[in-house]
């Protein structure tokens, strides 16, 4: 299925939390500010509904997304109010992909864990949590994974300030 068909199917199934989609478009020649949008389309999903949405994606025969390929976040800009939680799904049966985006407000960076649906998400969520400071509620193993346990700050946030020293070792 291509993206339009996937989106139509998701709508027909009444997928939980489905909040629209975004597709690449050409630059508007009239509007000087408009940059257009290149790349891949994605669907927007309300963050609280993610587990239910992914459950549908996995179990629906026509969607058939067996594999969660990637889960990560994006901090679009320091002044932005939301982080994006981005999930890539892949269906081996139907050979199609789906990009899912959820907005996680920086004020309350919380998301439900999707590891019960896709076990693959567990380590991705750990990485995401330490890099962006998103709390995954219900996560079974909320330790740091790449950073030391005592690391302060969330390095992949745009407002992250590089530390001057770590455990007495100067970083300058």
């Amino acid at each position: 299925m291509d993206f339009q068909a996937l989106y139509a199917h998701l709508q027909a199934q009444g997928a939980a939390g489905l909040g629209g989609c975004d597709e690449p478009r050409a630059k508007d020649p009239e509007d000087k500010q408009d940059k257009g949008r290149a790349g891949d389309p994605f669907v927007l999903v309300a963050v609280e509904q993610l587990p239910a949405f992914l459950q549908l994606c996995r179990d629906d025969e026509a969607l058939g997304f067996e594999v969660l390929i990637d889960l990560s976040a994006v901090d679009p800009a320091a002044e932005d109010e939301d982080l994006w939680l981005v999930i890539q799904l892949l269906s081996l049966r139907h050979r199609h992909r789906l990009m899912i985006k959820s907005m996680v407000p920086k004020a309350t960076p919380c998301a439900p864990t999707v590891a019960p649906v896709y076990r693959a998400a567990q380590w991705h969520e750990r990485e995401c949590a330490e890099m962006f400071g998103i709390t995954f509620e219900g996560h079974s193993d909320p330790r740091h994974i790449l950073l030391p346990e005592d690391w302060v700050g969330y390095p992949l946030r745009k407002d992250y300030v590089f530390p001057k020293e770590y455990r007495g070792v100067s970083c300058e």
Partner: peptide, 15 residues
Amino acid sequence: PAGEAYVGIENPRGE
């Protein structure tokens, strides 16, 4: 150009 894209390729170890 502005936008976002995900590309997965077959590496020797996987995607």
